[in-house]
Nucleic acid binder design. Structure first.
Length: 638
DNA sequence: ACGATTCGCGCG
DNA sequence: AAAGCGCGCGAATCGT
């Protein structure tokens, strides 16, 4: 395997960590640590205001100086407050997210961290804001740093009304006894400090410290990006959106009322099905009405209805389409999530077991294609939209070192390359066959085409198969950078055990086999989807780093302007003047940029993809092709 | 009445 | 076209 460019633990560029902890009183305890995690300066206790100044003064103002890595428990909690004060940081280690990775990774399975009995670092994920307005937009600049976990106010899970300080640093046993400030000021004695030490040791003691170090850095960078994207928001034209809704649904109506077009369609459906009381939103009622009309359906799913011939089908499909638009992305959605021309969704880094992000509000990852025209760049600005083409097959080629598959995708659409190699006849077949290989299809067209793929690309297919077999045995699989799949739950193991019992019935065996195969399909997909997520995080982290560098003066470039407002002398808001990420969707990013910088941004995105490929796979010759478009609104992409 | 689950559909 | 992976969300429906 070629040399892989993982970051070194130590070296010329000595890493400085700044450990940030919260106190009961709202102050912050800040320790500067060396690369080994040992204190190198006297710890300081800062008020929130002092902390903001501290962060600002420690972030580099030129490209020549290295940024510290801020080490804190939870980026989602602390970083929005800094952003609101106009402060960005370059790097961090999010202990909460990194803990999850290290706790589960097969690469650190024997570490002290992984073997420890469950503690507060294994707790439930933070509760995210349901209403973005609550703390994000009502924030007053001179209000004190506010580190409460938003969802914890009111009725908590245990109803105890546990204070922030207790949750963060006290009342967790580790600083028990003397919670004097002297004790709290000792980094190594704090829960946060101890956790950081455990994480450093887990990485250093693993078989692949370089990969894990990269993964933790990328995951943490993702947490920064998620907070920044939510803060900046996706440019959103409420006017365009409203016009689209009005055109499709009719004029806006009061909540709880069906818009005109929906109501008319509902009446037609009732008429055609001869059921004057039918609620077309009720699958149950609809199913019965369809049966009564003599339609042999097994469900009310759209794709099943599409195959039928009956006067009700057309209005019904139309109704389903429009009611979806109305309920998922209608006016009430706009009210909730679009503020001052920006869509502020709540991203959840690490929200998916594979390492993909999830959302906990706003549904940003399910933004329907037909409303993307409402994503409109500001005047004088552009959207640079980039999509990693056929990312997962390319990841599979690299993971399995399948040079023939990599060759099929070199400089071209990978599916087209498979066709050109004579493996299958059409691009569609190539795509269906590849998806089948990565998802574990056994039947249908995909199942039929798979064997041809296996003959042409034995290494790639062997990898997906071995991942599936591992899952069927209940084993763990691991992504390129070290994120491991969860182990199946107790009911899975019980089902397997039952099948081996002498008294097992045929049904027991069938159930066990079926569940084993289910889990195999999960692990089969996990290595590909998860490694693609590894790649995408590195890609995005690289993009972010380079975009940030654009706004940091280059010391060799004399006369570079400081990022300050000429009139007030105060730092500019972080995102109102320079290119920044505004959207991320698994294998796609959008950067909002002043028009004159769009070309530079596009180049940064392309270079970042190459860098991400090298970071994961070293010299292995696989292309990560992008489609890049500089446009005014998102509907113009592809 | 209200929380949990199911259905259907949006995205990759 | 509609199986094969991963999600979130809203409305209806189930369960207590």
């Amino acid at each position: 395997m070629g040399a892989v460019l993982y970051p070194a633990a130590t070296g010329q560029n000595r890493q400085v960590y700044v450990l940030v902890r919260q106190t009961n009183g709202g102050d912050l305890l800040v320790d500067t640590l060396d690369a080994a995690g040992l204190p190198i300066e006297t710890p300081v206790r800062l008020t929130p205001t002092e902390f903001r100044s501290f962060v600002t003064s420690h972030e580099p103002t030129t490209r020549a100086s290295a940024a510290p890595r801020w080490v804190w428990e939870d980026t989602a909690r602390i970083y929005p407050v800094l952003l609101t004060a106009g402060i960005r940081v370059q790097r961090c280690q999010d202990l909460r997210l990194c803990h999850v990775i290290l706790k589960n990774s097969a690469l650190t399975a024997t570490s002290e961290l992984a073997l420890a009995s469950p503690n507060r670092w294994d707790g439930a994920p933070v509760v995210h804001l349901a209403e973005p307005q609550a703390t994000l937009f009502d924030f007053h600049a001179d209000r004190d740093l506010h580190l409460e976990r938003p969802g914890d106010s009111g009725v908590g899970a245990n109803g105890s009304g546990r204070s922030v300080g207790e949750g963060a640093e006290g009342a967790v046993g580790e600083t028990a006894g003397g919670s004097s400030s002297a004790a709290l000021l000792t980094a190594v004695n704090s829960s946060t400090g101890q956790e950081f030490q455990r994480q450093l040791r887990a990485v250093a003691g693993s078989a692949e410290p370089g990969r894990l170090r990269l993964l933790l850095a990328a995951e943490s960078a993702g947490a920064l990006v998620a907070a920044e994207m939510r803060h900046a928001g996706l440019p959103w034209s409420a006017d365009v959106h409203d016009q689209l809704l009005t055109r499709e649904l009719g004029a806006r109506v009061a909540p709880g009322v069906r818009p005109e077009r929906l109501e008319l369609l509902a009446r037609r459906i009732r008429l055609e099905l001869n059921d004057s009381a039918l609620n077309p939103d009720s699958p149950q009622e609809l199913f019965k009405a369809l049966q009564r009309a003599g339609l042999a359906v097994t469900s009310t799913r759209g794709w099943e209805l599409k195959k039928l011939k009956h006067p009700v089908i057309e209005p019904l499909l139309q109704y389903k389409k429009l009611s979806r638009l109305f309920s998922a992305n209608g006016w009430s959605w706009m009210e909730s999530w679009v503020v001052n021309g920006r869509f502020h969704p709540d991203y959840v880094p690490g929200g998916v077991v594979t390492g993909r992000w999830a959302t906990s509000g706003g549904g940003a990852l399910q933004l329907p294609k037909h409303i993307r025209g409402a994503v409109v760049a500001d005047d004088g600005w552009k959207l640079v939209v980039a999509d990693a083409a056929q990312l997962e097959p390319r990841i599979l080629a690299a993971l399995s070192q399948d040079e023939r598959m990599a060759t099929a995708g070199r400089g071209t659409d990978l599916y087209a390359g498979i066709v050109a190699s004579g493996v299958v006849e059409t691009r569609d077949h190539a795509k269906v066959a590849m998806l089948g290989a990565m998802y574990g299809a056994t039947t249908g067209e995909s199942g039929r085409l798979m064997p041809r793929l296996a003959r042409a690309y034995p290494r790639a297919i062997a990898l997906t198969e071995s991942a599936a077999r591992a899952g069927e045995r209940g084993e763990v699989v691991t992504t390129r950078l070290g994120r491991s799949s969860p182990v199946p739950g107790p009911s899975w193991h019980e089902a397997q055990a039952r099948a081996y019992d002498p008294a097992a019935t045929a049904a027991d065996e069938r159930r066990a086999r079926s569940q084993a195969r289910d889990w195999g399909r999960f692990t089969r997909n996990f290595i590909v989807q998860g490694s693609a997520a590894d790649w995408a995080l590195c890609w995005m982290a690289e993009i972010r780093r380079e975009l940030t560098a654009l706004s940091i003066p280059d010391p060799s470039n004399s006369g570079a302007a400081r990022q300050a407002d000429a009139v007030t002398g105060r730092a500019r808001a972080p995102f109102d003047a320079s290119p920044h990420l505004v959207f991320f969707l698994h294998d796609e990013v959008i950067v909002h940029t002043p028009a004159e910088q769009a070309d530079v941004v596009a180049q940064i995105i392309v270079t970042a993809a190459e860098t991400a490929g090298r970071l994961l796979f070293g010299a292995f010759p696989v292309d990560f092709m992008l489609t890049v478009a500089t446009i005014d609104n998102y509907a113009q992409a592809k």
